[in-house]
């Protein structure tokens, strides 16, 4: 199968993300990349756990003082839902339903922005309420680095999905762009999985102390 071919619903292959050699490579290569990303986040988690609540003196806020469950829960729900909507989008991609895919991707992006907004609000809150800044203690550096790295991934993911949507808005699906959509959604799922760990390790475990 050629990447430039035109397709209809009937001729569209079952696994368009792996139909050509290039696509197969992209699919595999991206999984490998996510393997590396996993180690990257594992290292950041280890660093965070080692430095959790490590502050110069008692005037500094600790994890149990600053975290706010309702806000984090909202953020978590937004991101989890966006993962689900990106699954819908890929479902429609596999069924050659370009418009529906774009709609669901649009919803995903909106939810992603919602998450990002809540995170910015949260960081801002910590800085002004608790003077918990990037440079105030080892704990704060580790916190902002771990959560911020994730936030940067979300930002990059949003930019990626949006640029894919704009670039392909007029031309529908083919075997050249289908794998691109697919790996972008893989990336989005990965970000979501990382967040589940952040939610557990940083927030839930932080609040129990």
């Amino acid at each position: 199968m050629q990447a430039e071919e035109k397709f209809t619903y009937e001729t569209w292959p079952a696994s368009p993300e792996r139909a050509t050699l290039e696509a197969k490579n992209k699919f595999l290569g991206f999984w490998l990349f996510l393997g590396g990303e996993t180690v990257l986040f594992a290292s950041l988690f280890a660093t965070y756990l080692a430095l959790k609540d490590k502050v110069p003196d008692s005037t500094h806020a600790l994890a149990k003082d600053i975290f706010d469950l309702p806000l984090t829960l909202v953020a978590t729900m937004l991101l989890l839902t966006s993962s689900l909507t990106s699954v819908y989008a890929m479902y429609h991609m596999k069924n050659f339903a370009f418009k529906k895919m774009m709609v669901w991707l649009g919803v995903t992006v909106l939810l992603g922005f919602g998450f990002l907004g809540s995170e910015i609000y949260e960081f801002n809150h910590y800085v002004h309420e608790y003077h918990h800044t990037f440079t105030s203690s080892a704990f704060s550096s580790a916190f902002y680095t771990l959560v911020g790295f994730h936030g940067a991934h979300v930002t990059f993911g949003l930019a990626w999905i949006i640029s894919l949507m704009i670039r392909n808005s007029k031309r529908g699906l083919n075997l050249y762009n289908a794998p691109k959509f697919y790996v972008a959604s893989l990336y989005w799922h990965f970000i979501d999985v990382v967040w589940v760990f952040i939610f557990t390790v940083v927030y839930l475990m932080g609040m129990v102390g």
Partner: peptide, 11 residues
């Protein structure tokens, strides 16, 4: 940042 600044809690 203070990851390795012992006085700031670093290690």
């Amino acid at each position: 940042a203070n990851f390795f600044e012992v006085a700031m809690g670093g290690n």
